[in-house]
Design a protein around this nucleic acid. Structure first.
Lengths: 140, 140
DNA sequence: TTTCTAATTCATAATCATTACGATTTACAA
DNA sequence: TTGTAAATCGTAATGATTATGAATTAGAAA
């Protein structure tokens, strides 16, 4: 997902272009990591001291609904990042040190459905946590 | 994990046998579902109106540390259940309707490590959500 | 361009889960 | 039976998130 596409989606759905939304989207475009509402607020407060929780959370929810951002829960906090548009279904390795995210193409769901013949599978979460190459070699 | 084993573990680690702990463990022994702190409190308040958050949360943390309970995050709330002692590593299918939990023996982690040769994988989460046999057939 | 209106934001308070604290009570070993 | 560390109670604090009502603003229509 790039920022141009994000604006298209917003416009198509009747959402306006505001400076706050622009700042938020820019922050996501600049990184491949997951960010929290807190991350966003602490940066955006510099440019807009009055920036409020409401603005952040409402916009994050909007972006997720429109498929611009994707979301996961990491130690009790919601984390967001630009939605990947890889053509194939995939999962993520998340570095717990620096936050870097890598795509993993393996997904065992086909196997799984066979094992649960009578269940209606609605979703699944498969995430791998650890340290990435760089962080493994860092001395603590 | 059964309750007798749980008490052994507690005793071995210098924890005392209290009526509150007994009630909490009994609730977990009676079900195979995940329970929240709220679930526990709402039931236990009947027998012990004074039962406090502190007691619940402190004991849940203790039980998790000792491996008596296992924990997962489900829509922003921590959920707990008796730790499975299956001899093999496995994952869970969780019915979002009734809360029933099924063991899934498939785990793709061997495959994954190959794909991330330089990363130190520390943990992973793999959960499947949906409706179980019974709940699929219920009319809403 | 100006005006109108719905969308957006601000400031703040409410809510919900969780954690912390000081005083009191309790389990259990000596 | 008693002493003491552990556990609990009652309540308050914290931190993330959601809600509210008033004020502002973007963007379409005149």
């Amino acid at each position: 997902m790039n920022i141009t596409r994000a604006w298209e989606i917003l416009k198509d759905n009747g959402y306006k272009k505001t400076d706050k939304r622009e700042l938020i989207l820019n922050m996501f475009e600049d990184t491949d990591k997951y960010l929290t509402a807190r991350d966003l607020l602490s940066v955006l407060k510099k440019d807009f001291p009055g920036m409020s929780f409401d603005t952040i959370y409402r916009n994050l929810a909007t972006f997720v609904n429109l498929g611009i951002l994707e979301e996961t829960e990491l130690n009790g906090e919601r984390n967001f990042r630009m939605h990947c548009e890889s053509e194939h279904h995939h999962h993520h390795f998340i570095c717990m040190e620096c936050g870097k995210v890598k795509e993993i193409s393996v997904c065992p769901m086909e196997m799984i459905q066979e094992k649960l013949p009578d269940c209606a599978i609605e979703s699944h979460k498969f995430e791998i946590y650890g340290k990435c190459q760089n962080c493994v070699h860092e001395t603590v």
